[in-house]
Structure formats: structure tokens, C-alpha cells
Design a binder for these strands. Structure first.
Lengths: 199, 199
DNA sequence: GTAGATAGTTACCGATCGGTGCAGAACTGG
DNA sequence: CCAGTTCTGCACCGATCGGTAACTATCTAC
């Protein structure tokens, strides 16, 4: 076991720096966020970034983790709601809230990243694909349970319902990126939820 | 009125080249499509591209035009349907078809472009923003007419309905980019259309 | 033929990309 | 003080970015 502190201590707060990096990735996507833009926002030099986070891909991965545990924690929280309807309502509300957070870039880091990152950047792509798939499975499993509990009709299709919710959520996020206001988004979400359970 | 043909004739078909460029932009977005990738796909040199299309932004603009008049003509066609319900159904079907065209990149050139292009590229951004706004207005005006004609209830909100249709369409396109199959998408669209008119 | 115009090829431009080598600065344990 | 370790600042790497100058090739008009 090495000593707790060895060598020169770093002159910046790694957590704050990661937060800034997350915001840059959120706004510009993976490829659009240059090292210069990232390190400038983080307030550190290239070398310090590499020493602290590895490289651009690892930095993105850590920023994505921070994102899904912070501003985009709503998918995990929503499935804990008491009823399937509440799950869907909270999921859509969370997507809208995250996509229109004041002081943050409009839209979703994961979505922008998914559409931005090139084939060549395997690790980042895989992380995003995994995140999408897990999101779908989480919703689907929750709706399965709702069917078992009688909260949803016995002939309801949990897979379809999960995909429906994700589709509307993604659509709302895209609208938010285009400048649609929270109020307008909320009315669309309400309209979508008048159809419940879908299918 | 200059002479019809002057100087050395070009050795490639500009239309075919533009088609290839459109596919590259479709797959990689604006920033992700490098000049090398574009000209290689087009089968011409950089210089020929510049002589024929101006520069990258103009090439994108022309590719986008070709896109909305070709594979993505469905928004214009859908509003010509006889009823509001058919308009929405055809709009969603068109979005799904375009986003899953065999032999073409999954998803939508306009959507990928909108999420990919940086602030710095004004012209491309503006063209995409205009395209989105026109799409919304086209749908909204069509649903207004439907209200006037009694095809939609007098208290229906054309703006909301248009936004709803666009939201679902965009969500479906995102799903398609993630690998969701046509059949699965169609079931989501069906579910969304059970709720009609929305709101 | 020649003059004029446009297309094609090659090689290159400065800027920026992600990533590093190196030397010195700042810390801990002796 | 010293040795050992880690962080920082700066200059720099090769590769690629969008875009272009110079030259040659191929056409029309006369």
C-alpha cells in the first residue's frame, strides 16, 4: 500500500474539471469537443488532463458516467415510481427537465454523443450503445413487473410500451434542442400520455 | 447569354457526385464528413469539387436540397393527404421509411446534421433550422385547414398536433439510428396513432 | 491553325487535430 | 539537506482539416 499522498499535489479540483468537461461534451458532442476547448473550460493544461483522466475517450467516458448519475439520473429514478403510468410520466418529465436545464446546453449529452461520434471511436460508441440498451431494458423490465402485478393489462406488451416511452422522450429532447420551450414540450408529453397504456 | 458549352467539359456527372456526397453527409453529418471522404466517394478531386459546387458548405446545402426533394420528400407529400389522420400516418410512415432505407445510412440527414454541425458553421446551421421550422409550419397549417374543414374538432390545437407528430417522427428516427427494425418502429407508430387527435 | 475558357492533377498552404518529451516545480519520507 | 515521486508549462510531434496556386489537358469560337 503506497502512501496516501506522494509527489506534487494537483493544483485543480478533478471533480470540478470533470463537470466542465461534461458540459463541453454536452454542448458539442464527442468529436465537436476539441482538446483545446475541453482543457480551456477545465482550466488545466493538456498534460494535466492526460495525467488525470487518461485520454479523450476516457475523459468522455467519465463525463458520461457523471452525466447519467447527475443531470440524467431520471431513467433510474423513474422506474422506481409506484405505477407504470407514473413511471412513464416521470420518465418524460425527467427527459424534458434535463434537456432544458437553465445554464446547461439544451438537449442530451447521450443523444448528441450518439449522433456525433464516428465509427472509428469504438469505446465511446459502445458506451453510448450500452447506455441506450440498458435504458430500454430497464423500462421494459419495469413494465413487465407492472403486467405481473396487474398494474398493466395482461395482454400489454412491455417491450412495445418501453419503446414508445423512449421514442416520445427522444422526440421531446430533439424538440428541445431546436428551441422548443418547456411549456410546449409539456403539452406534447401530456398529449402522448393521454394514450396509456399505448398499443 | 453565354455559349452553352465553353471550355473543357467536366469528366464526371455532377448529379451522381452530389448523390454520393449526400450519402456521406447522411452517414457522418456535416463536420464528420471530411473533404477527403466526400471527394473519394464522389470519385473526383478536391479541385473539381470546388469548381463544381463552391465549397463544403455549399456542397452540403445542395446535398440537403437533393435530400429533401428525394428520400425526404415525405413531409411535403404527407400534407397532401385527404384527412388529418392520413397526413399524420403518412408523415410517420415516411419518416420511418426514410430512416430505414436499405442501402442508405440509418436515420435522417437533417437530424444528424442538426446535432452535428457546430455553431461556427452558420450557413449550414441556418439551413437546417429553416428546414425544421418550415416542416413545423407546413404541418401546422395543414392541421389548421383540417380544423376549418371540420376534419379536426373545432377546439383542436393545430400547433400542438403538429409538434406531436414531429416529436414522434423524430423519436422514431432516433430509434432507427439505434438499430430498431422497421417492424418494431411501425408498432410504435401505430401505438402513437391510436391517440388521435392528440391533446 | 490560334485565342480564350474551363476541367483535371499535383503538390502545397496555414490551422487545428489528439497526443507527448522534457525540464523544472512542488510535494513526502528520510 | 537529499532522493523519490508526481504535477505543471511549454514546445513540439505527425496526421488531418478545409482550401488553393500553378500547371497541363481538353473543349469552343474564330
Amino acid at each position: 500500500m503506497g502512501n496516501a499522498q506522494l509527489g506534487r499535489p494537483r493544483a485543480f479540483d478533478a471533480d470540478e474539471a470533470l463537470e466542465k468537461a461534461m458540459l463541453v461534451f454536452w454542448e458539442h458532442g464527442y468529436e465537436g469537443a476539441s482538446l483545446s476547448a475541453l482543457t480551456e473550460a477545465m482550466g488545466i493544461s493538456r498534460k494535466s488532463m492526460y495525467a488525470a483522466f487518461g485520454n479523450k475517450e476516457e475523459l468522455f467516458h467519465k463525463a458520461l458516467l457523471r452525466y447519467v448519475e447527475g443531470p440524467a439520473a431520471y431513467p433510474v429514478q423513474a422506474v422506481q415510481a409506484a405505477t407504470a403510468r407514473r413511471v412513464a410520466t416521470e420518465f418524460l418529465a425527467g427527459a424534458m427537465r434535463t434537456a432544458t436545464l437553465p445554464g446547461h446546453p439544451p438537449g442530451c449529452l447521450g443523444l448528441r454523443g450518439a449522433l456525433t461520434v464516428d465509427e472509428s471511436v469504438r469505446a465511446a460508441r459502445d458506451a453510448l450503445a450500452t447506455w441506450r440498451i440498458e435504458g430500454h431494458e430497464r423500462l421494459r423490465d419495469r413494465f413487465r413487473r407492472a403486467v405481473d402485478e396487474g398494474d398493466l393489462p395482461a395482454d400489454a406488451d412491455p417491450d412495445l410500451i418501453a419503446r414508445y416511452v423512449q421514442t416520445v422522450a427522444n422526440g421531446l429532447i430533439i424538440q428541445a434542442m431546436g428551441g422548443t420551450t418547456r411549456d410546449e414540450l409539456a403539452r406534447v408529453a401530456d398529449a402522448a400520455m393521454r394514450n396509456w397504456p399505448p398499443g
